[in-house]
Write a protein that binds this DNA or RNA. Structure first.
Lengths: 326, 326
DNA sequence: ATGAAAGCGCTAACAT
DNA sequence: ATGTTAGCGCTTTCAT
């Protein structure tokens, strides 16, 4: 404005419009650098109705966000994806019920162009909020309420649970248990359904006492395994719905003096490098690719941001990686 | 605007001004709920110059953010603190050098009232950016360049390193090594300085080959310990600058058949519940309180936000927790 | 190619 | 107690 030109011209320069002479562009760029001028994005988004930022909402009351490497990987993927689109990622955490209003207000306030939401529990108000706001949203993990216009990316949890259990059956286990994740979590339910599928395939019944509920943490897995160790006749195979829980189970088994996989075979779910390859013995587990999942989430969100037709949900394949624990 | 009143009145109602009659307030609130009206925060902040949001920038190229529980705890503390102040936390991650411009633009764009910055490495441009912008900032961990107007909260890393090492000396270790964190990290340097302090106290020299560099990860700790195991005469005590590294060191020692603490005593740093109490044997380690640190960071930032005089830097105490590994 | 002017949605000072 | 008005900093027609 002070380099002898009008605001409009400055705006054109900053936004790289072609309708400006190289000479003036030069001058303005100099002035901008000189004065340390920075456009006020709030003002810009007020008129453009865009913010070039997207919210990444993790709804995890017990802050598994930082303890479970799964989130880290997904978020890394998201982060990379958004960066390559020139979008800024805003990570919002919902740790307790009181946080919902603030997060809702934030998203309603036009601070972001869209939202990515993870780890929704049953009855989570976030999907409703996004829908009511008309805010483009993509879910990480199939949400509890789906519809024709909801986009999500999920792993094939059911298929993974099935092949894990199948593997235990194939290797000759007769008393197979499972340690599930929290049951208000669809991924947990799907993995459990896969467990049941494998039994159905084998025309065998699932004994209710062989299904115990964990919470995706190592501690939870250890506690659940200790509980299973009380059973008679003894369990000889366990499918754990997450690698951290499998690590906890291995620990419990070691304390109890059981040999893995000879006395008890253990299968996990996730195939985190940080865990699976490091346990003793190395973990047989279901592989998924959270990093890729993050990138796909971004891809879907970007197509929605462009106003293109709502893309089909994506279900990413999982596969069993056999190591030594089963 | 459409409930028979003017925009100004609506604004007053929404912002809870006392100068409005209960009757009208009622009407307006109804209309607001009816239409699902939500104030545009971008417009508001354009005029108020406030956003009620603060950025929480984690500058960690190797995304230790999710693998090291330290960050999780600090961020939980920050999150709680900000929530109680009615501020929204925006977590921004700087994963690679290309991310700086975007993050800088974001902060310059007036999206936040202030910033919290963590885990700054040597030469990190973030402090400069914040200063040039005049954006109130508080650092988690002493930044490389301090001055009269920089606020930070740090743990007493040096004191912790010293008492950890002192403990090893006291228990009779003669060949004491240390596994440091990345050396472009002031916390690593401080802990190392504490290590050296303890030697100075004992009027003993520090042998350069007994100082090996890790990277704060379990893998790094394991590799470093393997390196130390090659030394003659054998090491009988190790101070590890983080709990994950200590866990890696314990693993390496177990593989090598060394007994802890009898053959080699191990001390960590952090005292993460998730690690320290779970290792085998339980870890003797330096306790710090990242959760509290997060809350203090918020406290300092809030006083700066209010325009009050720049508060003194805070150095939080650390203390050795003796368990079984040393 | 550039400037003038309107307007994005809100708040605040002023007027009633 | 409520309405009117100006203006936050930017982008964008529309003139020139």
């Amino acid at each position: 404005v002070l380099a002898g030109v009008s605001r409009a011209t400055v705006s054109r320069v900053v936004n790289g419009s072609p309708r400006v002479s190289p000479a003036v562009r030069e001058t303005v760029e100099h002035a901008v650098a000189e004065l340390g001028y920075v456009p006020n994005l709030a003002a810009r988004s007020l008129v453009t109705q865009r913010t070039d930022a997207v919210a990444c909402v993790v709804s995890e009351p017990e802050s598994r966000i930082f303890s479970d490497p799964f989130f880290g990987s997904v978020i890394r993927g998201v982060s990379r994806g958004l960066a390559s689109e020139g979008l800024q990622m805003l990570l919002l955490m919902v740790q307790s019920a009181e946080d919902y209003p603030r997060v809702a207000r934030f998203m309603a306030g036009g601070h972001v162009d869209g939202a990515l939401m993870f780890s929704l529990h049953e009855g989570d108000p976030l999907p409703r909020i996004a829908r009511d706001l008309g805010l483009p949203a993509v879910f990480g993990g199939r949400p509890w309420t789906t519809g024709p216009d909801v986009s999500y990316v999920d792993a094939d949890n059911r298929g993974g649970g099935r092949s894990a259990t199948q593997h235990l059956i194939d290797r000759g286990c007769h008393r197979i248990a499972t340690i599930t994740g929290p049951l208000d979590h669809l991924a947990s339910l799907d993995r459990l359904a896969g467990f049941e599928d494998a039994f159905a395939d084998a025309a065998a019944p699932v004994s209710p006492q062989l299904v115990v509920c964990g919470d995706f943490t190592q501690e939870g897995g250890q506690r659940a395994m200790e509980q299973l160790l009380l059973l008679e006749p003894p369990v000889d195979g366990v499918f754990c719905s997450s690698d951290p829980m499998a690590a906890g189970a291995l620990r419990a088994l070691r304390s109890a003096g059981r040999k893995v996989p000879d006395d008890v075979a253990v299968v996990g779910f996730d195939d985190h490098e940080q865990i699976a390859a490091w346990t003793d013995p190395p973990l047989t587990t279901v592989h998924q690719d959270p990093d890729f999942m993050g990138e796909m989430l971004v891809k879907l969100l970007v197509t929605r941001l462009r106003g293109e037709p709502v893309p089909e949900p994506l279900v990413l394949p999982t596969r069993l990686v056999v190591r030594e624990s089963a």
